[in-house]
Design a protein around this nucleic acid. Structure first.
Lengths: 140, 140
DNA sequence: ATATTTCACTTGCAATATGCAAGCAAGTTA
DNA sequence: TAACTTGCTTGCATATTGCAAGTGAAATAT
């Protein structure tokens, strides 16, 4: 990934978004932080996709620089850090939901059908509830 | 990019989506094909971001394999090919719109404010109109 | 107290992907 | 028929990723 100090490729908002999460791992990390309620490095490493330690470390650094997450020491164990999504990350939920629905419909017709059903009947409520849950987990 | 013949990393729909367009270029190409009405290799090369020729060739190949685009000869000039989005690509429009809105709000407060305004008042209509335009351009 | 384990990384290195410039074959234009 | 355009491919330098091993600080066990 390009460091976040580089100039923008263009002034297109899609291009801007891709500079932040146009790679194989950044959105996986945000998914785990927001939708799977993982908060620690160790937990993030245990995801199904098997992110490498150096890649995870670099993505966390960039997400912090981009103000999509915050990093705090765990008060109960000074070895550990707690990574939490920010309010900016919460604004990504609608896009993530669209991506999830597209992925289910396109790749995984069977799994996730109830998520899609709920999306089709009450998209806005579904998104609001997910965002509320993320905020609650993150103490926002 | 990993070739599209590789096994899935996991059964998560986000992960599945990222295997298809989790990189710096794939969605840029789809943006140009769908939202900027570009159809030829030469036109796609001329985008603001400056994609390399070999990268564009590889992405077009993968998009065709994934059935997101079709490739046809130009009947008026047999040197040229015409790349068109498929109906499957049209289903990506809602996600692209969310990404555009997020990019405008997050990176480019000034530019694109009327797109965001329309999104806020009539999201569904905006998306339907964009999809209709893509279908029309592509002859779907 | 000391040893061991856990945690969050960092480092080294091979494999892969990207960027850039040049080349090429088929088709079109002068 | 010579020059040009188009859609690529190729070669090569650089950047990114994946994997395994290592490090230092803090916690836990002995």
């Amino acid at each position: 990934m390009a460091p976040s100090t580089e100039p923008r490729r263009s002034d297109c908002p899609i291009s801007f978004a891709l500079e932040i999460f146009g790679d194989r791992w950044t959105l996986i990390v945000l998914r785990d932080l927001m939708l799977k309620s993982r908060q620690r490095y160790r937990e993030l490493l245990e995801g199904d996709e098997g992110i490498a330690t150096n890649v995870l470390a670099e993505r966390l650094k960039r997400l912090e620089q981009r103000k999509l997450i915050t990093k705090k020491r765990d008060p109960d164990d000074a070895r550990q850090f707690i990574y939490l999504p920010t309010e900016l990350a919460v604004t990504l939920v609608p896009m993530l939901v669209e991506m999830i629905v597209w992925g289910i419909r396109t790749g995984d017709k069977d799994a996730g059908s109830e998520f899609v059903a709920r999306f089709e009947t009450e998209r806005d409520t579904l998104i609001s509830e997910l965002q509320a849950k993320v905020r609650k987990d993150a103490g926002l």
